[in-house]
Simulated scan of single mutants.
Amino acid sequence: MPPSTGLAPPSPLPEFVYKITPDAPPAPIPEAYPLSDLDRQDGFIHLSTAWQIPITADLFFNNTPKFYILKLRLSNFDLQKVKWDEAEGTNGCPHLYGNFGGNDVVDVRVFEKSTAEQKWSEVLKEKDEAAWLV
């Protein structure tokens, strides 16, 4: 059983949560998604809500010129395994104590910076990207 964090989930719950990965996801996406070293080490999958994506990207992927975002339907998961943990600059990030697979992925998009100095929050504010993050 995942540890209790004391943070209540947001209300209403978001329809989607997102996974940022610097590597292209496998095609097709397997039933059990390959865990990152950080996810394996921490014992859960780091996810973000739509509004958290620019914060997460700027904090943890600042030096990454390109990454992929997997859009996951939150209702596909046992919500007892999704904990809302405190994280820098947020009101609580969703962490999945388990795994996801191809059936949970609604869409995948690649995002690229046009310059090394560009912030991810700028890239993600562009009209098409902002509309995709709901």
Results as ranks from 00 to 15, higher is better:
57 A>S: 12
57 A>G: 06
58 D>M: 09
58 D>P: 10
60 F>P: 00
60 F>M: 08
61 F>N: 09
62 N>C: 08
62 N>S: 07
62 N>H: 03
63 N>Q: 10
63 N>P: 04
63 N>T: 05
63 N>S: 11
63 N>I: 00
63 N>H: 04
64 T>G: 05
64 T>E: 09
64 T>H: 00
65 P>K: 05
65 P>H: 09
66 K>A: 14
66 K>R: 13
67 F>T: 14
70 L>A: 15
71 K>Y: 13
72 L>F: 03
73 R>L: 12
73 R>Y: 14
74 L>M: 07
75 S>D: 14
75 S>A: 14
77 F>L: 12
78 D>V: 09
78 D>G: 14
78 D>K: 09
78 D>Y: 10
78 D>F: 08
79 L>W: 08
79 L>F: 14
80 Q>W: 06
80 Q>P: 06
83 K>V: 15
83 K>F: 08
84 W>T: 11
84 W>S: 13
85 D>A: 05
85 D>N: 11
85 D>L: 05
85 D>E: 14
86 E>T: 13
86 E>I: 10
86 E>V: 15
87 A>D: 14
87 A>I: 04
87 A>F: 02
87 A>N: 04
88 E>V: 10
89 G>F: 00
89 G>N: 01
89 G>Q: 11
89 G>C: 01
89 G>T: 01
90 T>C: 03
90 T>H: 04
91 N>I: 00
91 N>R: 02
93 C>P: 02
94 P>K: 00
94 P>W: 04
95 H>L: 08
96 L>M: 07
97 Y>K: 06
98 G>Y: 06
99 N>F: 13
101 G>C: 08
101 G>S: 11
101 G>L: 07
102 G>C: 05
104 D>K: 06
104 D>R: 02
105 V>G: 11
107 D>K: 06
107 D>E: 09
109 R>C: 08
109 R>S: 13
109 R>N: 05
110 V>Q: 12
111 F>S: 03
111 F>E: 12
113 K>W: 06
113 K>R: 09
113 K>V: 00
113 K>D: 03
113 K>M: 02
114 S>K: 12
114 S>P: 05
116 A>N: 10
117 E>F: 06
119 K>A: 11
119 K>I: 01
